[in-house]
Amino acid sequence: MSITDMTSMAEAQSDLRSEINKRLERLILGVSDYCYQCAKCTSGCESHKLLELEPHQIVALLKRGLIDEMVNSEIIWTCMSCFKCKERCPQKVPPVDILFALKNLTVLTGKQVPGDYTQMLQSVMSIGYIQDRQTVPTRSGDTVKREDLGLPVLSGLQDPNGFQNIITASAVEKI
């Protein structure tokens, strides 16, 4: 017995589906099964008009086990994480959290990480923050540094190497 999408000939991946559902449960984020496709999420999706993200379709594909289709798609990286979908879902389904799960799955399976995420990750690994202190422009046309503004010294990590070792393990750990 199997379920096949006759357009792409893809088979339902029920194991991955249940892995994602278990993950939502462990993180106390909600249950995907109750979706009745009212598409209240997509009607209010901040990314829909600009990038054609359809949260209700994400939930529908998850329910049908078509995980690879999503993992291989750029669309999952278009979520603005505004949380409107989760907030307003009449069935307490969290499309935004399903999208996080799918993106994590993409990264864990070694597919490329898009955009500036790699850079942010590297920065966090080495200094604990997504970026170091920036020199910023002023409205009068100068530039200033944190040090110029009378703000206290930003106390960074106490043991950067230790931090890096400990945190690296979590970056590749499944939930």
Binding site: A39, K40, G44
Partner: peptide, 9 residues
Amino acid sequence: NFFRGRPSE
């Protein structure tokens, strides 16, 4: 006009 969906707002 029938639309099958629920508006967000």
